[in-house]
Each structure stands twice: as structure tokens, then as C-alpha cells.
Amino acid sequence: MSERSDKPSTSLAPGQWSFTRWKTIGQLEAVEVHHPLFKAAITLQGAHLVHFSDPNENNWLWLSDFARFQPGRAIRGGIPVCWPWFGDPAKNPPAIRNHIKTPSAHGFARTTLWQLESVSESAHEVEISLSLNTANEFSKEWEGRALALITFHFSIRGCQIALTTTNLAQEPLALSQALHTYLPTSDITNTRLLGLGNSQYIDTLKDWNYATQDGPVYFEGETDRIYETGEVLIATTPEQRTKLIGFGSDSTVVWNPGPEKSRRLSDFPETGWRNMLCVETANAAGDYRVLNTGQSHTLGVLIERG
């Protein structure tokens, strides 16, 4: 085996990668990382992280047992990229809603092929970047021209994701977005989310009315809230504590479908709501962003354990 230097290798030639390789998952092409300190897998469709773990742990992310890896189909679990709009187009502010030409939720990025831009490796970390340029496509779905660049940084410490959007149009671009992180738990009723106490939120299940969070977030059924904060959050389950540190975000979406909605969701186990929660680093509701020509904005999250 050849020696591995701490100096990163940035070549896209797979033969020069030490830890990264091409892989087919279902019908989708992916890049898979087998590093001595961690493992990861990203599908090119959606730039979708479906696995991250250290060698001795299970997946840090929840992935549905019924997830289907098919062209044009959103993957249930992992970290979908919701872009260039989040949620129901009709529930977005007019600056975003008026430029969307489809009723589909969460934008088109999660079902679109992204371009692999770079792979950088060292003895301690791996960084992978992918891009999506909408300049010449998607006019049937969206009146916008933008470049999205997503970078995944993996290390023994955890996983950091940074999604940078640059406006390529000659007019301002308004967007909402989210890194839709699914986390696992053995028991949702014995799970809580810390860090949102005293913050305001929109309860989408109660006519989008505002409320104030009192203490930790507990899950007692369907939950769908947009919190007006992007602070450090800690998801505590019977197994572990997961810290999520957002940046470029002043909103957090907390979601669990509960028992009734679970029966209606695609690619979702009927009792799957008991074993997952979503903590989404977002620019949603009033936290949407407007970019002038050539301007960029980065939304990101660092996920750690402990």
C-alpha cells in the first residue's frame, strides 16, 4: 500500500483517489468514501448525503427502509437539498412564489443530477464538492438563473455541509431553501430537541399561527414548525446526542409526520415516525434571502456527536 500524505489530493481522476470511489446505489450513481476514520455516501442526483458514520457506528442519518434510488425520484431520508424553494410554493412569500411555475414542493435540486466538481483527500479528512447550474434549464419550473455549489467536509469530528447560491441573472433573486436533515432515534417519545427554548415559531398544523417554545421540543404526534432561529441545537435520543450548528440561517424547521401522515407518505414505513425526526437548517418563511446580480449566500450546517 502506498504512503498517504497529509497534503490533499484534488484530482478528479478516480485512480488517484485513496478513499473515494464511484458506486451505484439502486439506479443512481454515487460517490462513496471509505476513510479509516469515517464513511460517507453521496448520490449525484440531488447531491444527497445518504450515509455518514465513523467505522464503528451506524449511520448518523435516518434512511427509510423503503427508500428508492431511482432517477427523478426524491430519496426518503439522509439530507435532501431543498432548493431553490422550500416547502409548498403557495406558502412562500410573493417574491419567491411568483417565480415558481410548478406546484411541486421543495424545488427541483433534490431530483436533478449535479456535477461532481472536486474531491480533496488527506489522512484526516475528505472534502467533496458538486454543482448545479440552472442557467440553461428549468425554465418550465422556475424563473431564475443561479449556480448552486455544495461542499461536504468529512472528518472524525463530524460532517459539515455548505450550500452556496450565486445569482447569475440580471435581476434580484429571491429564494428559500433547507438542508433537510433526517436523524435516527429508537423512540421518538423519548427524544427531545434542545436550543429552541423561548424562541417563536410558526405552527403549520395550526393555521400557520405563531407560538413561543417553552423549554425543549418534545414529540407527541405530528410536528411541523418553522422556528425563527438558527442557533446551536442538540437532538437527544436514547442512544446519543447530536449537535447541529447552523450558519447563514435564521430559521429551523422541526418535523415529524406522526402516525396518521406516515400512512400517506411515499417510501415511508407506516411506523417510521417512531424512529426519526427532522431538524432542518433553513432559510424559510420570513428568513428567505434576496441576492442581487452576482451576489452569493451560503447556508450550512455542522453535525457533530457528543
Rank of each mutant, 00 (worst) to 15 (best):
3 E>N: 12
8 P>E: 12
11 S>E: 12
16 Q>R: 13
17 W>S: 14
17 W>M: 10
23 K>S: 13
27 Q>W: 03
28 L>V: 04
36 P>M: 01
36 P>V: 04
46 G>R: 05
50 V>Q: 11
52 F>N: 10
52 F>A: 07
57 E>C: 12
59 N>C: 09
60 W>N: 03
62 W>D: 06
62 W>F: 01
64 S>N: 13
77 G>N: 02
80 P>S: 07
84 P>S: 11
85 W>Q: 03
87 G>F: 01
89 P>N: 06
90 A>Q: 12
92 N>T: 10
97 R>A: 14
102 T>N: 08
102 T>K: 14
108 F>H: 06
118 S>H: 07
122 S>V: 10
122 S>C: 07
126 V>T: 15
128 I>Y: 11
132 L>S: 10
134 T>A: 12
140 K>H: 12
141 E>M: 04
142 W>E: 00
142 W>R: 08
148 A>K: 11
148 A>G: 06
155 S>L: 07
158 G>W: 14
163 L>M: 14
165 T>M: 10
168 L>Y: 08
170 Q>C: 13
172 P>T: 12
178 A>I: 00
180 H>C: 05
181 T>C: 05
185 T>M: 10
194 L>T: 03
194 L>D: 14
196 L>H: 04
200 Q>C: 15
200 Q>G: 15
200 Q>F: 15
202 I>E: 13
203 D>W: 04
205 L>S: 13
208 W>I: 00
215 G>V: 10
216 P>K: 08
218 Y>L: 05
220 E>D: 12
221 G>H: 08
222 E>T: 02
226 I>S: 05
236 T>R: 10
241 R>P: 01
247 F>L: 05
249 S>H: 07
251 S>C: 04
253 V>M: 02
255 W>C: 01
258 G>W: 06
258 G>S: 06
264 R>S: 15
264 R>C: 08
269 P>A: 10
269 P>K: 04
275 N>E: 13
275 N>T: 15
277 L>S: 01
278 C>H: 06
287 D>W: 00
290 V>N: 03
291 L>R: 00
292 N>M: 03
293 T>G: 11
295 Q>D: 06
296 S>K: 02
301 V>T: 04
